[in-house]
């Protein structure tokens, strides 16, 4: 029963998205890149929820649930890949060494 301004939520979402993007671009550690992608997904979810609140529509939250699903699948696969790389004997989780296609 609150009366918050949805547009403030949108601004927060935008800022969070930009931060997440910065994280993806700056960090070379795959783990941090995954976390940053989660941040960006969260920001998108926040934008949907804000828009849903603005129009009194449950669709925003439906999209939020979709995004959570994406995030879960992405985290599962991404973390499995990280584990795999670690197990294959890679000394670091350096994403920039991924272009050597060494497995």
């Amino acid at each position: 029963m609150s009366a918050a301004d949805p547009s403030a939520g949108l601004y927060v979402a935008v800022i969070l998205f930009a931060l997440g993007l910065t994280g993806v671009l700056v960090r070379r550690n795959l783990l941090f890149m995954l976390v940053s992608v989660e941040i960006m997904l969260n920001a998108a979810a926040l934008a949907f929820v804000s828009a849903g609140a603005r129009f009194h529509d449950p669709s925003g939250q439906v999209m939020f649930i979709m995004i959570i699903t994406f995030a879960a699948a992405e985290a599962a696969v991404g973390l499995a890949i990280i584990l795999r790389m670690h197990a294959a004997g890679r000394p670091t989780l350096d994403a920039d060494s991924g272009n050597r296609l060494g497995g």
């Binding site: 993007l21 993806v24 070379r28 890149m33 994403a95 920039d96 991924g98 272009n99 296609l101």
Partner: peptide, 13 residues
């Protein structure tokens, strides 16, 4: 086409 994911992400952005 450097093969580095971060650069690709940068281009997308």
């Amino acid at each position: 086409q450097s093969g580095q994911v971060r650069r690709y992400a940068g281009w997308i952005a």
